[in-house]
């Protein structure tokens, strides 16, 4: 049974003459990890902003958890956790205080927020640093705190924008494992945007490939491999190169 939680229909966003996202059709099912893959500037972030109602689409429509984020952003943001690229915290506060503030913004009573924040800090491996100011945190710690922050509101869907950039390999493995556990244990739907082929290949059930504001291919790795490489079990990198080559050819014509 596949329940669609994010559905984009002909979603388009223009900035003047430049079209950042062009007629995007995409659906993400409940409980899956969906990888949004594409080079920098392909329109991944813009798509995510439209899903959250942080920017309005020029045309087309997005449905997130059955709601239109352009019309009902508050309800969408209550159900969707968003970890922006290069997330920031209030540096003069501790990690715990930052989480509790997010809890307050979500209207979570103090009595529930305290244990929840401690739990999450444990889960992301930051219990020892809970009472340190976030200005002392390393990049990897910040990303993990960001994940805890996103989970504070107990979302149905989490959207991660380039969450792994600038983390060391060890931290990366921990982060990706964490995502898998979350999906398994809490049934979260995770949308993961990245330009790292390998990471996407490791964790994602299905992948959407973005090039120049357009979705070039979408499906599970198996499907993509059969569709583009005409053989099963191809690596994502091969598929990606094949698609890019195809793109170049069509541009020449």
């Amino acid at each position: 049974m596949q329940n669609t939680v994010i559905e984009l229909k002909e979603l388009t966003r223009r900035y003047g003459d430049f079209t950042a996202v062009r007629s995007l059709n995409l659906s993400v099912h409940k409980g899956e990890i969906f990888g949004l893959l594409g080079p920098n500037g392909a329109g991944k972030s813009t798509t995510i902003l439209m899903m959250l109602g942080l920017t309005e689409p020029s045309s087309g429509k997005a449905l997130v958890a059955g709601l239109d984020p352009a019309r009902n952003p508050l309800e969408v943001k209550r159900r969707v956790g968003y970890l922006p690229e290069d997330v920031g915290f209030y540096d003069n506060r501790t990690g715990l205080e930052n989480l509790l503030y997010t809890g307050r913004l979500n209207g979570i009573p103090e009595k529930e927020a305290q244990p929840r924040a401690h739990n999450l800090l444990k889960k992301v491996g930051l219990s020892d640093a809970a009472h340190k100011k976030t200005s002392t945190y390393s990049r990897g710690m910040r990303q993990r705190l960001g994940l805890a922050d996103v989970l504070m509101k107990q979302p149905e869907i989490i959207i991660l924008d380039e969450p792994t950039s600038g983390i060391d390999p060890q931290g990366l493995r921990f982060f990706l494992d964490l995502l898998r556990t979350l999906r398994k244990e809490e049934g979260l739907t995770i949308l993961f945007s990245s330009h790292h082929l390998q990471q996407v290949e490791q964790v994602c059930d299905r992948v959407g490939l973005f090039v120049q504001g357009q979705l070039r291919a979408c499906g599970s790795l198996q499907e993509l491999s059969e569709q583009w490489l005409k053989r099963p079990n191809g690596a994502l990198e091969e598929v990606y190169n094949c698609i890019l080559a195809h793109q170049l050819e069509t541009e020449k014509l």
Partner: peptide
């Protein structure tokens, strides 16, 4: 500049 604005605005607040 601290990157907190987009995090703040993704919370359910007007």
């Amino acid at each position: 500049n601290n990157g907190t604005l987009s995090r703040l605005l993704s919370q359910p607040i007007y």
